[in-house]
Design a protein around this nucleic acid. Sequence first.
DNA 1: ACCGTGCGTTACTGACGGTAACACCAGTCT
DNA 2: AGACTGGTGTTACCGTCAGTAACGCACGGT
Lengths: 216, 216
Amino acid sequence: METTRGAERQRTAAERRRRELLEAADRVVLRDGPQASMNAIAAEAGITKPILYRHFGDKGGLYRALAERHTDALLSALRAALDAPAERRERVEATLDTYLAAIETRPQVYRFLMHPSDDAAPATEQGFDVGRHSAPLLRRLGEELGKVIAERVDLGPDSERMARIWGHGIVGMMHAAGDWWLGDRPCTRAELVRSLADLLWGRLAGAGDLPGGPGF
Amino acid sequence: METTRGAERQRTAAERRRRELLEAADRVVLRDGPQASMNAIAAEAGITKPILYRHFGDKGGLYRALAERHTDALLSALRAALDAPAERRERVEATLDTYLAAIETRPQVYRFLMHPSDDAAPATEQGFDVGRHSAPLLRRLGEELGKVIAERVDLGPDSERMARIWGHGIVGMMHAAGDWWLGDRPCTRAELVRSLADLLWGRLAGAGDLPGGPGF
DNA sequence: ACCGTGCGTTACTGACGGTAACACCAGTCT
DNA sequence: AGACTGGTGTTACCGTCAGTAACGCACGGT
């Protein structure tokens, strides 16, 4: 009896500790970028390295735990925009804007999520295991959006496959355009959102050629 | 007179040496991935580290030189597809296919180009310099495509700005979809190309809602 | 009193990026 | 010929970082 109560107390204490460590890691990563050292994170948490390793295994584990929190937060924000009661175009614009607002207000978080150094690449080399290198966030967003599209849009036969392709494609578009925009700031967020939605709405196909040379 | 001839001979010799080193580096990177060590590259070239550093400054310099070669090659292939004499839709599909074929046949190169570890981030931290973290290849492709669109497509006023946005957006779409496809291989290359072109052609806007819940 | 378990430490290894300091060997200048 | 210069190459080192023993300490259960 006393055993189980003690074990439970220890478990919850461990969980709280883990959260504290994650918050400390968060602060350091936000300050130093993705190349924050384990020593620095441990120091910020007021402890030393081996504890971090006992909690998270290795650096990849810590970063994965950290990324999961932020990814979940972003994902739920996007889901809210995606589920708003409005026309499809409006919802697409709201989703784009939500994503862009997120990366605009917290660029360090975004940077960390999209560029996890070389985490999950221990010794699985051999042959062609390519594909795991892109940020897991992009994959997850792509899959998620693909599911939503498949659920709600009528794409005829092969709907499932096409929806997934579109999900990843749209997420990639959003990401690359947002990344570039964040660096150069060539226009307002609203303009960017509008232009990307226009692209998705087929304005490229509808636009006329310009004189001189073959039109794109 | 003798001076200039000697200097020139030395210059060409240095250039040839540089090319040899780059080829050795290429072999190692293709074998070990982007985290290939300077020691390994030097060993492959039959020399030792300091020589590499004299030629390329630092690891980032070597990787930049290496990336430039491959980027140039890919870019010229894409330009060819972009300039073919055909309808716009056909040219878009050809460009997508060219890119996907390139990453399919040489995934290691692709992986290296898109994931240059944390190269150009020496001490420029401070504030919000975000944006430099994504692969330079993506930026370059995006700018390039944006220029082509601006040159050839009539987008009305603000054509310049919108073309750049679209350039980066399309490249990002291509990249993310290709990256995902390369990992899961859920369909043939041709199907992927067709689906992405359909997306760009506005099929998302035109598709009907599916019963149950608000359409996307 | 005894012991196990979990938290915490110090001190180390091994690998890596990067850098002196030095050696050698051509051709060049006097 | 003999000193000078510039490029190629080396060995041996530094600082940093991820990751790992090995040990100490405190606590609750028996």
